[in-house]
Design a protein around this nucleic acid. Structure first.
Lengths: 194, 194
DNA sequence: CATAAAACCGAGCAAGCGCTAGTTAACGCA
DNA sequence: TGCGTTAACTAGCGCTTGCTCGGTTTTATG
């Protein structure tokens, strides 16, 4: 079979699959449910994807690629380390909200990927995290913070990623405020101003 | 059927189930796999549990109850807010490592619980988080930190819970060092001492 | 407007799923 | 010795799962 990975139709299907996988989990979402939500019959699904797992892979891949793009764009014209860290935090939150389905799936359904798929996605994730490593290193260089850089990156990304568990925008706290609080925490600045 | 919820055998089975659910996910773990790992036949499983979902519930419940116990015990004899926060962070990491299987399952398989089970476990989780709220409030009272308390609790617990994604003890970083770094971050203390 | 490619349908297979029913074996206690 | 309880067994039912396949419709292109 010869599948067109960049077809417009396929991207629509991936977005629909993301929503279902996010809501019900990968294993609990059957190909029939996917097909129903897509307005086609279950057999037709395999015209677009070789197997169910490939749908999962595509969902996560799309989310990661978009995150990468947003992050790169967010910091490319900034020079001050603190500004760049803030922009990165905002960009991260913004993709987490915008592509919430895909990122929730990435977090929860990692296990269901084949080993080959996992390895490919690990590369994407490493590339993304290296941006964070870079900017945190800049903050260290500017004397804004000291200590274990890898640990700080992980704690920061952990706190951010965990927001999918509880944060809903528009209920009191704005995303930018959340990003500001995180940056203040990472850089150990007093919260007296707020 | 009359199941003994506190039987020793049942606790063993719950621990075994935790390992399998953690490694492969709830949906991907069949009752036959569980039975195999337990050294019994699949039918015999239902002598101990009413259905598969009840096993999942028991795994998560056990993990939460233990976490609660460890946390309460860790801070009961301490009075200084900073000490209590540090003890709480250490206790949290310690249960996260000790009962790693159960906590990973709690994070990943929440969705697969019935609504009734979820509600019961939410009570346990709220009780646990209220300990954190209490200690963070004490830190505010002592002037150690200012700002949005609920947000700080969530960012802190998020950073800690996310450690299951990357942290392996014995590889460079000790749990106590990790807890110390987190407390320093939450309390916005300079990391110059390290 | 002819033709190829892409998208989809409908029926169904083989395997595996959670769970049930009825039975047996071992043990403590009267 | 006899009885109730607990824990295990065997066999399999009814259903769902991911996926296949041959054929049909729709869409895009020169």
């Amino acid at each position: 079979m010869n599948l067109n990975k960049n077809s417009k139709r396929r991207k629509e299907l991936v977005a629909i699959a993301a929503r279902l996988f996010c809501d019900q989990g990968y294993e609990s979402t059957t190909v029939r449910m996917l097909a129903d939500a897509m307005g086609i019959k279950s057999g037709s699904l395999f015209h677009h994807f070789n197997d169910k797992q490939e749908i999962l892979f595509s969902v996560i891949e799309a989310g990661m690629q978009h995150a990468m793009q947003i992050a790169t764009q967010a910091i490319c014209e900034l020079e001050q380390p603190r500004e760049r860290l803030m922009a990165l935090a905002r960009a991260h939150l913004s993709t987490l909200l915008e592509d919430r389905d895909a990122h929730v799936v990435a977090i929860y359904e990692w296990r269901s990927l084949t080993e080959a798929s996992r390895q490919e996605l690990v590369k994407l994730r490493d590339a993304y995290e290296s941006i964070w490593s870079q900017v945190i290193a800049e903050c260290h260089g500017a004397g804004l913070i000291q200590g274990n850089q890898g640990l700080q990156r992980r704690l920061a990304l952990g706190a951010l990623n965990w927001t999918v568990q509880w944060y809903r925008p528009g209920v009191g706290l704005e995303p930018d405020d959340l990003a500001a609080e995180l940056v203040a925490m990472v850089l150990r600045e007093d919260a007296c101003g707020k």
